[in-house]
Amino acid sequence: MTLDNKKQIITVDLHNMVKEQAKRYLEQFLNSISINVKEVHIIHGYHSGTTLQNMIQKCLKHPRIKQKIKSFNQGVTILYLK
């Protein structure tokens, strides 16, 4: 996980996690991050399949999530937060 304080962006890498582990991690992560964070870049990869990508883009729900954007990089999804 990396944090860019100037832009209030956090990057999270989910490589080597399975679907349920990643979902649980992201839910706990979103519950715990500062209200000042407005953008989260989630690196989920795609070369080993799209399970994590699909879970994030279709199944992940959280009250902080304002919008989900597919990045130009197929292995990244961007969450804009409230």
Rank of each mutant, 00 (worst) to 15 (best):
V76T: 12
T51H: 08
V76M: 02
I42H: 02
D13A: 04
Q57H: 12
V18Q: 15
I33G: 02
I35S: 07
A22I: 03
L79F: 10
I56P: 07
Y25T: 06
T77Y: 09
Q67W: 04
I56F: 09
T2S: 07
K19W: 01
D4C: 06
Y46R: 06
K6F: 15
F72S: 14
Y80G: 10
N31W: 03
K68T: 02
S48L: 08
N36V: 09
V37M: 06
T50P: 09
N16V: 13
S32T: 06
V40W: 01
L3M: 15
R64H: 03
N5T: 14
L3D: 14
I69D: 14
N36Q: 07
I78E: 06
V12M: 12
Q28G: 10
P63R: 11
L60T: 03
Y25M: 00
T77R: 09
I43C: 11
K38A: 00
T11G: 14
I78K: 13
I43K: 02
Q21D: 14
L60F: 02
K61M: 07
M17H: 15
K66M: 03
E27F: 05
Q28A: 11
H62R: 07
K66D: 10
D13H: 13
P63T: 01
N5H: 14
I78T: 13
V12L: 12
S48R: 09
G75D: 11
F72M: 13
K68R: 03
Y46K: 01
Y25S: 02
T2V: 00
I43T: 03
H15D: 03
N36T: 05
P63K: 12
Q57Y: 05
H15T: 03
Q8V: 01
T50N: 08
Q21H: 13
F29T: 13
I42T: 01
K7G: 00
N36W: 00
M1C: 13
K23H: 13
S71L: 10
V12F: 10
Y25C: 09
I56E: 08
E39T: 07
K66I: 04
I10W: 12
S71W: 12
M55R: 04
T50C: 03
L3Y: 15
K19M: 14
I35D: 04
H62E: 11
H15A: 00
N31T: 11
L52R: 10
R64M: 01
G45V: 02
N73M: 01
K38R: 07
G49A: 08
L60N: 11
N16I: 08
K19V: 15
G49K: 10
K61W: 08
H47L: 12
G75H: 09
I10S: 11
T2W: 14
N54E: 12
Q67A: 08
N31C: 12
K70T: 05
I42E: 02
K7T: 13
P63V: 04
H62W: 13
E20Q: 15
V37R: 00
Q8Y: 11
I33L: 03
T77N: 11
T50M: 10
V40D: 05
K38V: 12
I33C: 10
Q57R: 07
L79I: 04
I69N: 02
L30R: 08
N54Q: 08
K6R: 14
K23I: 10
K70N: 08
A22C: 13
I69T: 04
Y46Q: 00
S48Y: 05
K66L: 07
L81C: 02
V18N: 15
K68E: 10
I10G: 00
K58S: 00
T2A: 14
I56G: 07
K82W: 01
Q28P: 01
E39G: 05
L52P: 05
I9A: 06
I43H: 05
